[in-house]
Amino acid sequence: MEFIIVKFVLVVVVFLVSLGIAAYSTYAERKIAAFLQDRVGPDRAGPFGLLQPLADGVKMFMKEEIIPTHADKGLFILGPSIMMMTACLTGVVIPWGSTLIINCTEYPVQITDLNIGILYIFGVVSIGVYGIMIGGWASNNKYSLMGAIRASSQMISYELAMGMSIIALVMMTGTLSIGEIVKQQQGMHWNVFVQPLGFVLFLICAFAECNRTPFDLPECETELVGVYHTEYSSMKLGFYLFAEYINMFISSAIISSLYFGGYNFPFIDQLGLPHNVLTLLGTLIFFGKVFFFIFFFMWIRWTLPRFRYDQLMHVGWRIMIPLALFNILLTAAIVLWQNGQFN
């Protein structure tokens, strides 16, 4: 019984935290954009404009809800729903912290540690494509359809390179469970030091999967109006935009836990603090890493221009995939050498 309560609380907390962080990412994005462009940014709603996400949310809900006459109504509503659902699903397998001891029982701060954790994430990400495709098609608008097709072909192309960059990591760690991968990175043994190429590839693919600049072709207003969400209004549009920020948060969390040690930090054993305090400290540090990567996402957005569509495909298929394959071969050779196969 207690087990169920702990898990339930954890699910609710992870859900609320993802939504909260996604909401404040919109604020952070505008503030960082303002900082990089030497402006002030939002500063009217509340102190330092801190209530801006709330105001935006209310605005989104108050807008008129329009469903185009010739749109496929059921699918039109299904599109943003899938998008939001898949965005919230991935938080389940991420280890947010080590373990908490309550009443002499150890509870991991992770909703579930599937032994196929990484594959689960890939499965959910591949469903996410449908949110865009269905939304774009159901709108019955040529711009929407073009945008949807662009977005999904981009996501499929980069999913391949992403999967391959992860295979090298799985070969090093010998497990698909994310909890186990984080545990192996005790102290300063972060995977980024042994898999630098894999990390760079994964980071680039994460940008492409989240449709962030320089890969925001699905959202390029100058060519395709508003792309796959051209016909959407009110909170349905809000969900599409909001899901993007949740995805960004989750990608940052995945990058931090796979390559930057998750909740581990150096000298963790030498502090001499009680176990629960260490766990909370680890969680805080994990969120610090996550926030850094969210900042990094935004930093790139306001620094680099977007690719042309053919350049995007060229990078995806001709550069990323061969590099990922090379990385797999290199990793395989090193693993064999470490196991003494070449002696």
Partner: peptide, 10 residues
């Protein structure tokens, strides 16, 4: 997982 990724996803 493979069924979802390969069939449903790709």
């Amino acid at each position: 997982a493979v069924h979802i990724i390969v069939y449903a996803g790709a």
